[in-house]
Amino acid sequence: MEKFTTLTGVAAPLPIINIDTDMIIPKQYLKTIKRTGLGTALFSEMRYQEDGTENADFVLNKPAYRQAKIIVAGDNFGCGSSREHAPWALLDFGIRCVISTSFADIFYNNCFKNGILPIKVTPEQLALLQDDAERGSNATLTVDLEAQTISGPDGGTIHFDIDPARKQVLLEGLDDIATTLKSDPAISSFEQTLGAQRPWI
């Protein structure tokens, strides 16, 4: 998994509450178990017209936000079903960070397992970041995970909280398997000791 240390990029404003996982990646795209190739389907029901052409009014179709790396979203982002395809689609599009006042628990956990940083902020902080994100190509934010800060285009800084263990996983780029393997010496030692004490197991 790619490490997350500092991210600087355009932030796309998506001030919609209760964006569920079916909005992020509709059910018809869930047939694959590949983590790549889903970026084109991200928010497909909002990004595309019925004839398949782009909806020019949707934020990620606007020239200023086509290369967005951050989404500044409304409350309760990622609610709905537990599909891991949602963070896969975000990541494949290029989104490495989502900022909101709250997230659905399963989506929040899945983000950390896939190298995406979900940041919880206060409503007041979100309003400031939404204002920054509305600036189009000038809507550049810098997220420093080590310092736990978000810096806006005018130099203002917001501090955010994060669980230390989750922070370390992103800083080191560790998925669940890699995290477990960090304890391999202790696991091997335990198995050897157990085997000597209880050879019948």
Rank of each mutant, 00 (worst) to 15 (best):
T32I: 03
A41M: 01
S81T: 02
N114C: 04
T36I: 12
K31R: 15
N109F: 00
L60F: 05
A73M: 06
Y108A: 10
C79W: 07
E50I: 10
K120I: 15
Y65E: 07
A68F: 05
A104N: 11
A56N: 11
T36N: 12
S102F: 10
G39M: 04
W88C: 06
D22K: 01
G37P: 06
P13L: 07
V98T: 09
T8H: 11
L60T: 06
L38M: 08
R135M: 12
I99Q: 03
T8K: 15
A73H: 08
S151Q: 15
T101E: 13
A127L: 12
K113P: 00
N61I: 03
S102L: 10
A64G: 10
D154M: 03
A64R: 07
N114W: 00
T40G: 09
A127I: 02
R66T: 14
S82P: 07
R135Q: 15
T101Y: 08
F43L: 04
G78Q: 01
A56S: 15
I119P: 05
P26A: 12
K120T: 14
Y108P: 08
V10W: 03
Q130L: 15
D22Q: 04
E45G: 06
I16W: 13
G52L: 10
K113L: 13
R135I: 00
S82C: 08
F77H: 02
P15V: 05
W88E: 06
I25Q: 02
A104T: 04
T8M: 09
V59Q: 05
T142M: 11
G74C: 09
I24T: 04
P118A: 09
I19V: 15
L7R: 13
E84D: 11
Q130D: 04
K120W: 00
E45K: 14
S81I: 00
Y48H: 12
G9T: 07
A104P: 03
F43Q: 02
M46S: 12
T122L: 08
T140S: 10
D105T: 12
A89D: 02
D92T: 05
D131I: 01
N61D: 09
T32K: 00
L126F: 08
I150H: 05
P118S: 10
L60D: 02
C79Y: 07
F58Y: 12
D92V: 01
T140I: 15
D51G: 11
E50M: 08
